[in-house]
Nucleic acid binder design. Structure first.
Lengths: 283, 283
DNA sequence: GATGTGTGTATCTCTCAGCGATACATCTAT
DNA sequence: ATAGATGTATCGCTGAGAGATACACACATC
């Protein structure tokens, strides 16, 4: 389907050889290794054997053995019920639940998303900004949803998605350029954005319009619009976006019909700084 | 809303004092501590401060400092954008995605769930068996869904839910008794099952009927039916369940209308042992 | 039946990661 | 001021755990 690529980008870690932490006395090797093992499945297509975990995580077989053994006992990994092989364990879902539950922004977003879905009868998503990529956190599926339902945690590039462009529109130009430069620009469709210039055109349009409008970027018959979610300092931390089919909509029609609603929703979810009492403002 | 309780039950770990692993040379203290910190948010209601993490995880402040610092750099934790405080980080969602993506049973379940939702116009869920509790993994929301959308990872008791009873119906009586004994039996509504005997009545009925039917267990106006998903050895690993409103349905009507569909769906998702070649069968 | 390459599992010794104590610089709140 | 949070930094001693090595058990293939 979508071309496989490592979207973790710069935030990806070379498990331990990262060298970056060599001089950080606070940084614990063992934690990095543990996380490396848990993240080993990122690039997997099937349940992994012990030595596959070892190579994927960049640790030697002995270390993998001990870490996997421990993570198994803690429920962070499981064995595939049928075939042998290791998989992320149920305790991962607990952490997911905690993340969705505790993040104040997502808490606020929930009712807003439900209301938005009620009005817009299309697929509504909320995703979180993570440098070169954007990660789906909430989805309100529409009536006609034919494909996968499991998208929590799905990551797509920032530079060519409605949510991503909406986020970029709040960043200074040089930061946008920086992100695009570090992105994998392999196109998904023949219409996928390929250059920084094209990104900038969309970013500028989004700044004026208030929401982004993108067509045929990840899928050939898809139109999507998005608006950014800000934190209390005004920085973008995510986006709300709506996707529809070009067999039913024109880009303009879609944008005109739902743009204001999406902008309004994103605005509502964004931080409202508690009146006047904020860091340096009271002076 | 739902009474707060620790559903992790027996699988919960006393982070390090567990004593259970004292003699296991393969078990790594550092991994346990790392996981303990990541799981510290389980019992939290808000973003946690460093020392809150420390106490919740059962490690001293120094250890918490180092582990949190490391997990932050790795993206497994984040700081709350507005308020200060720590939260599960975005990388958790990556792991979620991996879990949902890689589990062969969930892969098979996806199209089945979509088809089931198409026929049953009610809320359809798939949850995974985890001892005294059952964890939501997939949800296909229905038209009238008014409450929370973020339920991936939500855990409910095994002994009083449609999915849970369906799972128990495949276990021997003494195992059922064992699970009920270890469960927190605090009722959710005035109709919630309170005794092992009541559980057993439902289990037996489910064994004959092929699916479970439960009313007013977690919510006062809810009816739910469920059917178990088996692994290749026949052991239950999860359940598919459908929930509806008692303002629209009678329990019998609901059961008769959707029971066969749910059973069929669960059957389809269950392991099909590759014809004859299995562990001890070929002899 | 050998042989090879995969799996998971177990044991042992030496050393450096990281434990835990201690100190400090902020804040906010009395 | 005083008191109690918060996050942050330094440091010397020691036992957790690295990493090598070995074994049991699957499957293949010749």
């Amino acid at each position: 389907m979508t071309t496989f690529r490592d979207l973790r980008g710069i935030s990806s870690f070379d498990p331990d050889e990262g060298e970056a932490y060599k001089d950080d006395p606070l940084f614990m090797r063992s934690v990095a290794r543990t996380v490396a093992v848990m993240s080993a499945f990122q690039s997997a297509r099937h349940p992994l054997s012990l030595s596959q975990v070892a190579t994927a995580a960049g640790v030697d077989r002995s270390a993998a053995q001990r870490i996997v053994h421990s993570l198994l006992k803690l429920g962070m990994l499981t064995r595939d019920p049928e075939d042998r092989g290791y998989l992320p364990g149920l305790r991962v879902l607990d952490m997911t639940h905690d993340l969705l539950r505790l993040n104040p922004m997502l808490q606020r977003a929930n009712p807003v998303m439900l209301e938005l879905r009620r009005r817009v009868r299309e697929r509504v998503d909320l995703s979180l900004f993570d440098d070169v990529r954007v990660v789906y956190a909430l989805r309100m599926p529409s009536k006609h949803e034919i494909f996968s339902a499991t998208i929590v945690g799905h990551a797509v590039p920032t530079y060519c998605t409605a949510g991503g462009i909406a986020i970029l529109s709040l960043l200074p130009d040089e930061k946008v350029a920086d992100i695009v430069k570090r992105s994998d620009l392999t196109p998904f469709t023949s219409h996928t954005i390929r250059t920084l210039d094209e990104v900038m055109v969309h970013v500028h349009a989004t700044r004026e319009r208030g929401h982004s409008v993108l067509c045929r970027q990840l899928l050939n018959h898809e139109v999507a619009i998005g608006a950014p979610i800000r934190d209390s300092s005004g920085a973008p931390i995510g986006a709300i976006h709506v996707a529809g089919s070009l067999q039913e909509w024109t880009a303009e029609g879609f944008s005109d019909s739902f743009g204001p609603l999406v902008q309004n929703a994103a605005q509502t979810v964004s931080e409202k700084a508690p009146i006047g009492i904020r860091k340096g403002i009271q002076e």
